[in-house]
Nucleic acid binder design. Sequence first.
DNA 1: GTTATTGCAAAATATTTGCACGGCC
DNA 2: GGCCGTGCAAATATTTTGCAATAAC
Lengths: 150, 150
Amino acid sequence: MDRLETTAGLRSKGYRVTPQRERILEVFHDLAPGTHLSAEELHQRLRNAQPPISLATTYRTLHLLATLGLLRELDFAEGHKHYELHRGATDHQHLVCVACYTPIEFTGADVEDAARAVAERYGFKVLDIQLKIHGICAACQRRAAQDAEE
Amino acid sequence: MDRLETTAGLRSKGYRVTPQRERILEVFHDLAPGTHLSAEELHQRLRNAQPPISLATTYRTLHLLATLGLLRELDFAEGHKHYELHRGATDHQHLVCVACYTPIEFTGADVEDAARAVAERYGFKVLDIQLKIHGICAACQRRAAQDAEE
DNA sequence: GTTATTGCAAAATATTTGCACGGCC
DNA sequence: GGCCGTGCAAATATTTTGCAATAAC
């Protein structure tokens, strides 16, 4: 799924390819895998774009691209959404520490296979599989234990 | 995990048991399994409570109970969170239709076992496992096919 | 030329917080 | 009695939307 493919995907579905949409897709393509951006963070990175891209367009584009399945919409429960490029069927999943909010990534092919089987049973057409494990990471467990000692 | 157990859980962790907190836990206990409430919906149900419960307290209590692991915080991406009683280790998971937002529940013991194995590898203490399958439900697929015909 | 897309600003929605008062322990 | 929890209202955060101008097709 490279740049050309994604913009072509837009056009084939009747959406226009604007410089704003191209720039936003470009940012996500250039992102190191595993990095997710919030709407605000994305807008920050685009502050010098030519032509400029308003926050409203940022939101509208994120929503469009997520609906088309080009982006994954992630929620780590800090109050806003995060987005990353949807890299196809076998994607990665997240462990989220509820104390420090740091997300850790892992690949879970077996989880995804199990999920697909369920979806099939219900006649669902799968767009994305998101497994989120909420817990306390090793570092925060240590920190909590230390606090208790004092 | 019955009523007494949950309020006792509060007290044992140094939190006070107030009528407001008791009423909120009561609402969740009385909820049919599989029903989730948003903060606003919960507040609506409590509008005649005695003593009255403010929206601020509703939010504060939901956050507290979720952090303590008594409630599950769910996100179906409609812009606000949903809560339900956390019924222990083996919980249910959700298929979410991105077109109509209807969540379908299913139990996924195998998924949860796989998730637990991953968490262990990272030294995570698991609080909750949430699998969300985004897709298009059978009804919406039919609807889309019909629209295309016209 | 037609119509989707954009920018701006205002609005809508969702959630959090400061502070004084009151009630749980 | 001390201090946590609550209510109120204001503040904050996030996202959406109406409308006129602009650009993609």
